[in-house]
Design a protein around this nucleic acid. Structure first.
Length: 573
RNA sequence: GCACCCGUGGUGAAAUGGAUAUCACAACAGUCUUCGGAACUGUUGGUGGGGGUUCGAUUCCCUCCGGGUGCACCA
């Protein structure tokens, strides 16, 4: 049952009864302090002004009618304990113990508790991660992947048919740099795991990249390699290219597996260039124009805040912008999604607006279904991370360090090595993902290694720990359970578990996973407090069935919530 | 220079225009015969400056200051 919607309906019908026909939006929210009710509405204050009434008085008359309506219906009579006014004109709704007890039962019984239909019947394509073969998989990619996977799950849970896509840059100058570096520093030992080989290639890239900026002759050599890669005219280069592309892509695949992502589509820049170029050339004079020898799109003609960008260089090479057009049209031709989301760091924001404006001129219907979601940059204290300069923390090394730190904690626990590996992997991924997802997407993340793998307080492992603790508890329950009288004292845990669905819906609506993360922290805290204050398994008095159900409901919500963040819920850790 | 994003305790963050601004880390003080201490309880400390809109502003508008990102042939 959707209690929030029920309250909204009650208020609306009350307003009609009072002769208020205006359509003004009002809030229904949870007061921070539950002594102010489980739900609270500002409806009286919102309408007071236009109706020229005193908000407190108006609130009182609304409450009077509300109470009548609640009494009229047996169902609502059971749900609400009280409705009253407070403060400047708030109307506060107090839910009954009955409601809370029933809500625990609902969580246990409803198969997809917390689901909503915001995206019901919609096909949504989402593109995220976008690493480049021959370059390291750095923490920025980890961030994009984490956000993309979580959003995918949230939208999916809101009813959509999700299609996950990745776009990888397998052509361009960075490839030539890496190949030059491999020529100079040698190939890695091919018996090593692909991740080590990929790491070597990444180092070769950074090495050559520095030389490219500082040594004029080497720059020329790399430019020659770049041309040869493009033409596929040199067998030796082709061999290295084919091997390097495969190895780095395989290494990415291992990372995706650890992170729990599986893509339905892999798009490559190499496939997009010819198609994009054709589209751009066909629209010269209509959308694009020649300027200084290049083919450009003057976006400022359509929107003064945008700027001109080059789509085909005067050396006749298609740019990233052109490939993006091909990528977009390919997506719509293949899947025709109702919504096409692309997730990148915010540095791409203006670039993407220009490209979207160009697409709008040619394919207005598709353009209207595009949505660019940006997130802040991962930053180090020392400044921006750049794989070009080599001052990156790779996603791989970070995951490894996090893994080792957890192995250290597990070393004295009694479990098999295999079990420890599994747990360390699941917990380390959650530590990293949570540190990204707990905050809103805007704004940079100041990257602090110790905090990103912190295991207590506001962290992913804290969530998992509380889940494992509850699971352990449930394993120990045996024997006859006592029905007993249910208490009228309602714990914080009971007061927030039923809100899960509201939080998921809000996250889907705003495309903001951080709401789920902060909700889960509240839930975990509430559980840990409940746990410390209440005896669940009671060998003397007997174990209460309701308490066991409450713990069960907690594990179900936590498990589903962790899933939506892209994290597993281990029963032991 | 222009555009966009961001300024919240010492640090990192939360808060849909609402009530006494919420957490975590750090610091300090407790809980330890534990249904799993990766836990629980408590203390100290905060909205960059100035205007405006509003019954009410961390939130919206203007301005200044500070940080980040982008602005023609890279991706």
């Amino acid at each position: 049952m959707n209690i929030k919607r029920a309250i909204e309906d009650l208020i609306k019908s009350t307003l009609r009864d009072l002769g208020v026909n205006e359509e003004v939006s009002f809030n229904i929210e949870h007061p921070e302090d539950h002594t102010n009710g489980d739900y609270s509405s500002n409806v009286a204050m919102v309408f007071a002004k236009s109706l020229q009434k005193n908000p407190k008085d108006f609130a009182l008359s609304i409450v009077e009618v509300l109470k009548e309506k609640i009494k009229e219906n047996e169902h609502t009579q059971k749900i609400f304990l009280d409705v009253k006014t407070a403060g400047a004109g708030f109307i506060n709704f107090y839910l009954s113990p009955d409601f809370f007890h029933k809500s625990i039962q609902d969580i246990l019984e409803e198969k997809d508790f917390g689901k909503n239909d915001l995206f019901a019947g919609k096909k949504v394509m989402i593109e995220y991660t976008q690493p480049n073969p021959f370059k390291p998989f750095h923490v920025g990619h980890l961030m994009s992947n984490t956000i993309g996977e979580s959003l995918s799950r949230v939208i999916e849970y809101s009813g959509a048919n999700m299609i996950r896509a990745n776009y990888q840059g397998d052509v361009g100058l960075h490839v030539a740099k890496a190949i030059y570096g491999i020529f100079d520093k040698g190939e890695p030992d091919k018996s090593l795991p692909v991740s080590s080989q990929a790491q070597h290639i990444g180092e070769c890239y950074s090495y050559a990249s520095n030389l490219y900026d500082t040594d004029e002759n080497i720059k020329k050599e790399i430019d020659v390699i770049n041309k040869k890669v493009y033409e596929r005219s040199d067998e030796k280069i082709n061999n290295i290219y084919d091997w390097g592309r495969e190895v780095t892509l395989e290494a990415f695949e291992e990372i995706y597996k650890k992170l729990g992502t599986k893509f339905d589509y892999y798009f490559f820049e190499s496939e997009m260039a010819p198609k994009g170029e054709k589209i751009v050339r066909e629209n010269i004079g209509k959308v694009f124009e020649e300027s200084e020898g290049a083919i450009v799109f003057k976006a400022e003609k359509y929107d003064s805040k945008l700027h001109t960008r080059v789509f085909i260089t005067k050396a006749l090479l298609p740019t990233y912008e052109t490939k993006e057009i091909a990528l977009t049209t390919t997506k719509f031709e293949k899947e025709n999604p109702d919504l096409s989301i692309v997730i990148t760091a915010i540095e791409q924001a203006d670039y993407m607006k220009v490209v979207e404006k160009a697409i709008e001129q040619m394919y207005p219907d598709w353009a209207s279904r595009m949505k660019h979601v940006t997130h802040g940059m991962m930053r180090l204290a020392s400044g921006k991370m750049s794989s070009r300069k080599g001052n990156v923390i790779t996603g791989e090394s970070l995951m490894q360090d996090s893994f080792s730190a957890i192995m250290d904690i597990l070393k004295d626990k009694e479990m098999s090595q295999e079990e420890k590996d599994k747990i360390a992997s699941v917990v380390s991924v959650s530590a990293l993902k949570y540190s990204v997802l707990k905050q809103s997407l805007n704004g940079d993340i100041i990257f602090d290694f110790d905090k990103s793998i912190s295991f207590d307080g506001d962290s992913g492992p804290y969530l998992q720990y509380s889940f494992a603790r509850a699971s352990s508890l449930l394993r120990k329950v045996n024997g006859e359970l006592i029905q007993g009288n249910l208490s009228n004292e309602i714990s914080t845990l009971e007061r927030i578990l039923y809100r899960f669905g509201e939080v998921v819906e809000r996250s889907a609506e705003e495309l903001a996973p951080n709401h789920i993360a902060s909700y889960l922290i509240e839930v975990a805290r509430a559980f840990n407090v409940y746990y410390s204050e209440n005896k669940i398994i009671d060998t003397e008095e007997g174990t209460s069935e309701y308490r066991v159900n409450l713990v069960k409901a907690f594990t179900l919500v936590m498990q589903k919530g962790l899933y939506l963040l892209g994290v597993e819920a281990p029963e032991k850790m």
